[in-house]
Amino acid sequence: TTLTVNTQTYTFTSEEEAREFARRYGAKTIRKTNGTWEVHG
């Protein structure tokens, strides 16, 4: 199964959650914005 996250942004309140998600789905960018963490595919 392949998950494609081209134009979607996922927002997390903790860096740990964001990094775990990025690691699991191979997202390329993690960015902190206004106190939340954004993961970009």
Results as ranks from 00 to 15, higher is better:
Thr1Asp: 13
Gly26Asp: 05
Ala22Asn: 01
Tyr25Ile: 15
Phe12His: 00
Glu20Asp: 08
Phe21Val: 02
Thr13Ala: 11
Gly26Leu: 03
Lys28Asp: 11
Glu38Ser: 03
Gly26Gln: 04
Thr9Ala: 07
Tyr10Thr: 05
His40Asp: 11
Gly35Tyr: 02
Gly41Glu: 06
Glu15Asp: 02
Lys28Pro: 06
Glu15Asn: 01
Gly26Phe: 03
Ser14Cys: 07
Phe21His: 05
Gly26Asn: 08
Thr33Ala: 15
Asn34Gly: 06
Phe12Arg: 00
Thr7Lys: 07
Thr4Glu: 13
Gly41Asp: 07
Ala18His: 00
Ala22Ser: 03
Trp37Cys: 03
Ile30Pro: 03
Ala27Glu: 04
Gly35Leu: 03
Glu20His: 04
Tyr25Lys: 05
Ile30Arg: 04
Thr9Trp: 15
Asn6Pro: 13
Thr11Cys: 12
Gly26Glu: 04
Asn6Gly: 09
Glu20Gln: 06
Arg31Val: 12
Ser14Leu: 04
Arg24Ser: 05
Thr13Ser: 11
His40Asn: 08
Leu3Cys: 07
Ala18Asn: 00
Ala18Asp: 00
Trp37Met: 01
Ala22Thr: 01
Ser14Phe: 03
Ile30His: 05
Glu15Cys: 06
Trp37Asn: 00
Thr29Asn: 07
Thr4Met: 07
Gly41Cys: 15
Leu3Asp: 13
His40Trp: 12
Asn6Arg: 02
Thr9His: 09
Lys32Asn: 12
Trp37Gln: 00
Gly26Ile: 01
Arg23Tyr: 06
Asn34Lys: 03
Tyr25Ser: 10
Asn6Phe: 10
Thr36Asn: 07
Thr1Val: 09
Lys28Phe: 09
Arg23His: 09
Thr11Ala: 06
Tyr10Ser: 03
Thr29Lys: 06
Thr36Met: 14
Thr13Asp: 11
Thr33Trp: 08
Glu38Thr: 07
Lys28Thr: 15
Arg19Thr: 08
Glu20Tyr: 04
Phe21Asp: 00
Thr1Gly: 14
Thr4His: 12
Thr33Arg: 09
Phe21Thr: 01
Thr9Cys: 13
Thr1Ile: 10
Gly41Asn: 09
Leu3Ile: 12
Val5Leu: 10
Ala18Met: 02
Thr2Pro: 12
Ser14Trp: 02
Thr7Gly: 05
Gly26Met: 03
Leu3Val: 11
Trp37Val: 01
Glu15Lys: 03
Thr7Phe: 12
Ser14Pro: 00
Arg19Asp: 06
Ala27Ile: 12
Arg23Val: 08
Thr4Trp: 07
Ser14Tyr: 03
Phe12Tyr: 01
Ala18Gln: 00
Trp37Tyr: 04
Tyr25His: 11
Glu20Arg: 06
Tyr25Arg: 06
Tyr25Asp: 02
Thr4Asn: 14
Thr9Leu: 09
Phe21Gly: 01
Thr2Gly: 14
Thr33Gln: 11
Tyr25Pro: 00
Ala22Trp: 02
Lys28Cys: 15
Glu17Met: 06
Asn6Ile: 14
Thr2Gln: 14
Arg19Val: 10
Arg24Glu: 07
Val5Phe: 09
Ala27Met: 15
Ile30Trp: 03
Thr1Tyr: 06
Arg19Glu: 10
Leu3Glu: 13
Ala22Cys: 09
Thr13Gly: 09
Glu38Pro: 01
His40Ala: 09
Glu15Trp: 10
Glu38Trp: 04
Gln8Glu: 09
Ala27Val: 08
Thr2Ile: 11
Val5Gly: 14
Thr36Gln: 11
Gly35Gln: 04
Lys32Val: 08
Thr7Ser: 10
Arg23Asn: 09
Arg31Pro: 05
Leu3Met: 12
Tyr25Val: 15
Glu20Lys: 07
Arg19Phe: 07
Lys28Gln: 13
Ala22Phe: 03
Thr29Ala: 15
Arg19Leu: 11
Asn34Thr: 02
Tyr10Gly: 02
Phe21Cys: 05
Arg23Ile: 08
Phe12Gly: 00
Asn6Thr: 12
Glu38Cys: 09
Asn34Tyr: 02
Thr13Trp: 07
Gln8Ser: 10
Tyr25Thr: 15
Val5Ile: 09
Val5Thr: 14
Thr7Met: 10
Thr13Val: 08
Arg24Gly: 03
Phe12Trp: 01
Thr33Pro: 13
Thr9Met: 10
Ala27Arg: 05
Val39Trp: 01
Thr13Ile: 08
Thr29Tyr: 14
Ser14Asn: 11
Tyr10Val: 08
Glu17Asn: 03
Lys28His: 14
Glu20Thr: 05
Thr1Phe: 08
Phe12Met: 00
Ala22Gly: 03
Leu3Trp: 05
Asn34Met: 03
Gln8Arg: 06
Thr11Tyr: 14
Thr11Asn: 06
Arg19Gln: 08
Phe12Gln: 00
Gln8Trp: 15
Phe21Ile: 02
Thr13Asn: 12
Thr33Glu: 14
His40Leu: 14
Thr11Asp: 02
Thr11Met: 07
Val5Glu: 13
Glu17Pro: 00
His40Thr: 15
Glu38Asn: 02
Gly35Met: 03
Asn34Cys: 11
Thr4Asp: 15
His40Met: 14
Arg31Asn: 07
Phe12Thr: 01
Thr2Arg: 06
Glu15Gly: 02
Ser14Thr: 10
Thr2His: 14
Ala27Cys: 14
Gln8Ala: 12
Thr9Ser: 08
Asn34Asp: 14
Lys32Trp: 11
Thr33Asp: 14
Gly41Thr: 15
Arg19Asn: 09
Thr2Val: 09
Thr29Arg: 04
Phe21Gln: 01
Arg19Trp: 09
Thr33Ile: 14
Gly35Arg: 01
Lys32Ile: 07
Val39Pro: 00
Arg31Gln: 11
Gly35Ser: 04
Tyr10Arg: 06
Arg24Lys: 14
Gln8Phe: 12
Ala27Gly: 15
Arg23Trp: 06
Thr13Pro: 06
Glu16Tyr: 08
Arg19Tyr: 09
Asn34Val: 03
Gly26Ser: 05
Lys28Trp: 06
Thr11Gln: 08
Ile30Asn: 03
Glu17Ser: 05
